[in-house]
Structure formats: structure tokens, C-alpha cells
Design a protein around this nucleic acid. Structure first.
Lengths: 236, 236
DNA sequence: ACCTGAACACCGTTCAAGT
DNA sequence: ACCTGAACACCGTTCAAGT
């Protein structure tokens, strides 16, 4: 991809042979460095100054390629959704397609939690997102929904998937950085909640610690897709 | 509540009559000011310096009452969940209870989007949260679920409700501040997506702009609670 | 054409000093 | 006991100046 023959990238005049000057900035190189920085040190490490240092440039140089820090974030958002969608093929049933895509979105968010937490609510409205939308809506139309119902279900599924994935990413980032064992603290304190004041809570507390995040996500998707299937049969 | 007779709040010695020195800092007064600041100017306006100015104090004075900015956020998080839960009474059916509480959580988040966006993933693990958990779990046990299933369903409902509410809050904040008409831009660009490349998307695009956020939330909750009800009947 | 360096107007947190 | 003020180590963005 980078050596696409009709790539418009201007080849610096000084690079006659040997490796090109490694400090040549491009949008792609800047996004690579930003992603690496996020991965290494978490969401608040992404600053223009740190980024400039990693790139071997002045911290203001990247502003020639992006309108500002926010613009970098938008570029990263498109990468995240692209990672979730690219290469995905519809499954044998509409249900497999929907569940599969939801899992891919979640996996991409958990693979880059520091990124997901920064950009999950920033829809990119670009290519990768449209491809994902087209896949989901195609599966719903395939299942038999009329356009209006397909649109409603699409938004329900996408909202729940994205919201839950970014929510999980947020606590993954917290666990890693600020909070010591947030997840464990959560379990401990729920177990310690006063049984007199919160009797229902106390009676199921041991089970709250049980299921892990993967199971919970699968469970929510199962509930949702069951409901969708029921609506399909019941003359929705 | 504030004039609880056995309140441990130290009454400043100098306050003999007339109004007490209005600059006396307390945790409550600091949280009030922080909330007002968030409401007025959005999430990034909450800085210790701005807060100090609003309180008529040096910006470092609040650090005598909170361990740091993060500690203030945690205090605000507890207020948010308290607002959602306080005064809530279980409905006539378990389903009404669950839907009602979900709506209250969402409404609190949308009433304070700048706050919700900062703290939604920071569970407070304190009183108000336990009360909410107890209500939801109580409704599920009431419905007939065994403890283990009640715990699974509780987490599914709470995760979806919180995640969607904070997700919506995030875009409400964006709409208000950074992005011009983000919601409208979304509709416009989805309508403009290439029908050749994204045929399914194009065929339902007019309907995507239709349903508003309130309807979508109700729809998701309906799907979820339908699925829960089905599990109950089907020998889950 | 591309990058640098200084400057500007901000941050959160620490800590010695005031009253 | 409570607060201030200066200092420290950071931010993002602008803009004139260099090469």
C-alpha cells in the first residue's frame, strides 16, 4: 500500500539512495507514532510534545499535517473502525453476521483501549464506518426486516456494541493506570455491602464476581439478538 | 440535611451573626461550584484554577478538601448516581421497575452531560450505587430468577444502561461545544453515502435520520426486557 | 517547502510561608 | 487551622524566523 505507484506522496528531493530520511513526516507516520504512544503509555500520554519527541521533530511540526490534536484523534478513530471492519465477511446466517461484527468491534476496542476511550464517541463518518453500517443493515434486510425496522435495529445494535465496548475500554485503561485493582475492588466492595440495607444485593453478591467480561458481552448480544429474532417471527 | 444537628461540620469561630463568611470552603460547597462550572461551560472548563476563582479562593485551597482533581470527580460521580436513584420507588411490575430505573439513570446523565461524560465509567461503589443495585436485583429476583441468573441479568441491564447513557452524554457535549451540528452532519453524510458502494445503507438511509434518541433508548430497553421476559418463561 | 524556537495562555500538584 | 503565593513540570496553538 505504501508503495502504490500512483501514490501522491511527495518523495523528498534529497533522498537519492540508501534509506530515505527517517524523519520525513507524513500523516501515516504521525498516526503510527500516536498509536504507539497510546499503546505504550495510555491516553493522557498523547500530547503533541511527546509525539514530536518520538518522531524526532519539533512538537509543532505535526501541525503542518493535522489541524490540531483533535484532528489526529479523528484520524485514529478511522483506523480503529477500519481494524474492526476490514476483511470481515458476512457469516452463514444474519445472526452470525451481526454477532461476528459486534465481536470484532469490541475486540478492536479492547486491543487499543487507550485509543477507544479517546475516540469511541467520535464517529468518523468515513469509509470504514459506512462499510460496517452496510454489512449490518444488509444482514437485517436479509433477515426479512422492512427498511424502517432495519434502520431501528441497526441503530440499536450499533449503539449497544459501541457503547459497551468503549465502556469496557475505559475501565481497562483505569485498571492499567490510575486505579489499582479496580475490578477486584468492585467485587470486594459489593461483597462487603451491608446485607441489612441491601438484602437483594447481598443474596446474589457471590455471583456478581463470577462472570467475566467476555461472557457478559456475549450474554447481552444473545439477549438482544434473541429479541430481534422474536420480533421477526412475531410480525414486527 | 445540611443542618443535621449532629453534623460534624466545624462551625467557623468568627461567624457570630449575620451571614457566615461566604468563602468558607466545605466539600459540599466545592462540589456545588464544580457542578455549576461543568453545567455552564462543559467538561474541559473544570480546572482547579477556574474552580478556585469561582469560589473566591486560591486554586490550591480545594486540595485541603479533596486529594486531587480526580477525587472531586469521584465526589461528583456519587452525586450523579444519587440523583438517578433517590426517591425512586419500585413500580407495579418488575418490568416497570427496571425500565423506570433505567430511564432515571439516562435522564440524570442527559441532565448533566458534561458530568456524565467525565465520570460515567467511574463507579462510585458507594451508597447510591448500592441502592440502585439492590432495586434492580430485587426486581429480578421478584420476577422469578435464581440468584445466579439475576446477577447476570443485573450486569447486562446496568452495563447497557450506563454505557448508552454516557455515550449519549458524550455526543450531547460534543454537539454543544466542539462540533457544530454533529447530529445533523451525521444524518447528512449518511444520506450522502455512495449508493453504489453501500447499497443496503442507502436503501434505509432516510429512516436513519428519523427516530430520535429517546425512541432509540426505549427501543433498546424494550428489546432487552422482552428477551429477559422470554428467558423467564422458557425455563432459563 | 518544511521545520524550528520562542512566546502565550493555560494546566495539576507541591511546599514553604503567612495569618 | 486554614489559606496563599511562588515554583515546578507540564499542556495546545500561534507565528515570525530560519534553512
Amino acid at each position: 500500500m505504501t508503495d502504490d505507484p500512483d501514490s501522491p506522496a511527495p518523495r523528498p528531493a534529497g533522498a537519492r539512495r540508501g534509506r530515505p530520511p527517517s524523519n520525513a513526516l507524513t500523516r501515516e507516520r504521525i498516526l503510527d507514532a500516536a498509536l504507539a504512544l497510546l499503546e505504550r503509555e495510555g491516553p493522557e500520554a498523547l500530547t503533541l510534545r511527546r509525539l514530536g519527541a518520538d518522531l524526532g521533530s519539533n512538537h509543532t511540526a505535526v501541525l503542518r499535517y493535522f489541524a490540531g490534536k483533535d484532528d489526529i484523534l479523528l484520524g485514529l478513530a478511522e483506523r480503529l473502525i477500519a481494524e474492526a471492519v476490514e476483511g470481515f465477511e458476512p457469516g452463514p446466517t444474519w445472526r452470525a453476521t451481526l454477532a461476528g461484527l459486534a465481536r470484532r468491534v469490541r475486540r478492536a476496542c479492547l486491543a487499543h483501549p487507550a485509543l477507544a476511550v479517546l475516540v469511541a464517541s467520535r464517529v468518523s463518518r468515513r469509509d470504514a464506518e459506512f462499510r460496517g453500517a452496510d454489512l449490518v443493515i444488509g444482514a437485517l434486510l436479509d433477515a426479512g426486516f422492512a427498511p424502517r425496522e432495519a434502520a431501528r435495529h441497526y441503530r440499536a445494535l450499533v449503539d449497544v456494541t459501541l457503547a459497551m465496548s468503549s465502556f469496557e475500554a475505559a475501565s481497562a485503561v483505569l485498571d492499567g493506570a490510575d486505579r489499582e485493582g479496580d475490578r477486584m475492588a468492585w467485587r470486594r466492595e459489593y461483597l462487603a455491602a451491608s446485607p441489612r440495607r441491601f438484602p437483594h444485593l447481598a443474596s446474589v453478591a457471590p455471583h456478581l464476581a463470577g462472570a467475566d467480561e467476555d461472557d457478559q458481552f456475549e450474554f447481552v448480544m444473545e439477549l438482544l439478538l434473541n429479541a430481534v429474532e422474536t420480533r421477526l417471527g412475531g410480525g414486527a
